[in-house]
C-alpha cells in the first residue's frame, strides 16, 4: 500500500483544486468499480454494487476527503513578492521556512517581515512567498492572484512509519482505494458508494452535497486523527501503530452507537487491533453527512497521525492496512 500512498501524498490537491489528485484516483479505481462520476463541486463518486436481493441489503457511503491544506496567492507586490492566505488550517509558525509548490510546479519559500517585533504576533498577513523574481511583472509570468500552492514534504518510509505532507487525508484515500481492492476480491452484499470528497479542510463542504445525492443508510468517514503519544502531549488515548481508531466523538459529530458497534464487531471478527478516538477540536466529513436528509447514522475510522497539518505528518503503515481491512469487513 505504501507505493500507492507515496503517489497519493505527492500529488497536488489543495482544497478547491483537486483536479490532479482526482485524476490519479480515477485511474487507480475506474476498472474496479461499477459506476464513477465527478459532481458539480468536484467530488469523485464511485459505486461498487452489491447484491440487491441480499438480506439486509444497505447503502453505505465511505467518505475520504482528497483535498489537502495549502495557501492561495492574494496579492503580488511591486518587487514580486507574493502575499497569501491560508486554505484550511495553516499555522504561521509551522509555515516559516517551508517550501511551497504551485500547481504549475513553481517553487517558493515562505518567510515573514523582518520588522516583526515579537514572534508571538506572527500572522499569515505578515508573511510572504518568495519565488526568486525581481518584479511584479516577472512574478505574474508564473503566479497569478488566486493560484494555490501546497506545502512540500517528501515521502519517507522508515520501518513501519511513513512521513509525508498530505497524509491528511491521502492516507484515508489509500484506505478507501484498498477497500475497493479487497471488495473486488471478496464481493459485497451492500451497495457501497466511495466518495473522495472536496473542500473538507474548508468546512466539510463536498461531503454535504455528496451525501445529499446518495442519501445512504449508513456513512463511514476515513480520515486522520491526532495522537497522545508524543512528549508532554495533551491527554489522548490514541497511539501510532496500535491500530486504526474507531471514532466516538469529535467537534463535528457524536458517532452513532450502531455504526460504532458495527465497526467493533468487524474488528473482533477479523482480529484487527483497534483503539477508540475522542478528538477535542477538529471534525471530519461525517459531521456534515449525518444531518443530511432525515439523518444518516454515521461513524468514522481514523488513522492515528502525528504532526497533522505540517509537511511531516507521520503514520504507521500497519495501521493503514488494518484500517482498510476493518472498513472492508464492516461494510461488506
Amino acid at each position: 500500500m505504501y507505493e500507492l500512498l507515496n503517489r497519493l501524498t505527492q500529488t497536488f490537491g489543495v482544497s478547491g483544486n483537486e483536479e490532479p489528485i482526482r485524476e490519479l484516483i480515477i485511474n487507480e479505481i475506474k476498472d474496479k468499480v461499477d459506476e464513477i462520476k465527478t459532481d458539480a463541486l468536484g467530488n469523485l463518486i464511485a459505486l461498487k454494487k452489491g447484491n440487491a436481493d441480499a438480506q439486509n441489503h444497505k447503502k453505505f457511503m465511505i467518505a475520504a476527503h482528497m483535498d489537502e491544506i495549502g495557501v492561495i496567492a492574494t496579492h503580488i507586490d511591486d518587487k514580486g513578492y507574493i502575499r497569501f492566505s491560508n486554505i484550511g488550517g495553516v499555522s504561521p509558525y509551522t509555515s516559516i521556512g517551508q517550501k511551497v509548490e504551485f500547481k504549475n510546479g513553481i517553487t517558493g519559500v515562505v518567510s515573514y517581515e523582518q520588522k516583526l517585533d515579537d514572534i508571538k504576533n506572527l500572522k499569515l498577513s505578515k508573511m510572504y512567498i518568495d519565488i526568486g523574481t525581481k518584479s511584479r511583472e516577472e512574478t505574474e509570468k508564473f503566479v497569478k492572484i488566486g493560484d494555490t500552492a501546497c506545502f512540500c514534504g517528501s515521502f519517507v518510509k522508515q520501518g513501519d512509519f511513513a512521513i509525508s505532507k498530505a497524509m491528511d487525508n491521502r492516507a484515508g484515500c489509500a484506505v478507501a482505494t484498498e477497500v475497493i481492492n479487497i471488495l473486488s476480491k471478496t464481493g459485497t452484499d451492500n451497495d457501497i458508494y466511495f466518495v473522495f470528497t472536496v473542500q473538507e479542510e474548508l468546512g466539510l463542504r463536498g461531503a454535504k452535497t455528496a451525501a445529499y445525492q446518495i442519501m445512504p443508510d449508513y456513512a463511514i468517514a476515513v480520515d486522520v486523527t491526532r495522537t497522545g503519544d508524543t512528549p508532554e502531549s495533551h491527554i489522548m488515548e490514541v497511539k501510532l501503530g496500535e491500530g486504526p481508531a474507531i471514532k466516538i466523538k469529535d467537534s463535528s459529530i457524536l458517532c452513532h452507537p450502531a455504526v460504532k458497534s458495527l465497526l467493533e464487531a468487524a474488528a473482533k471478527r477479523a482480529n484487527i487491533p483497534y483503539q477508540y478516538e475522542i478528538l477535542e477540536g477538529g471534525g471530519t466529513d461525517v459531521g456534515a453527512i449525518h444531518t443530511t436528509g432525515g439523518g444518516v447514522p454515521s461513524g468514522a475510522v481514523s488513522i492515528p497521525t502525528r504532526y497533522i497539518h505540517s509537511p511531516t505528518e507521520m503514520i504507521s503503515l500497519k495501521d493503514l492496512e488494518n484500517a482498510a481491512k476493518l472498513v472492508a469487513e464492516a461494510v461488506r
Binding site: D39, A40, L41, N43, R205, G206, K208, T209, A210, Y212, Q213
Partner: peptide
Amino acid sequence: IQRTRAGVK
C-alpha cells in the same frame, strides 16, 4: 447556495 442539495457552481 454552493452547498445546496447536490451542489451548485
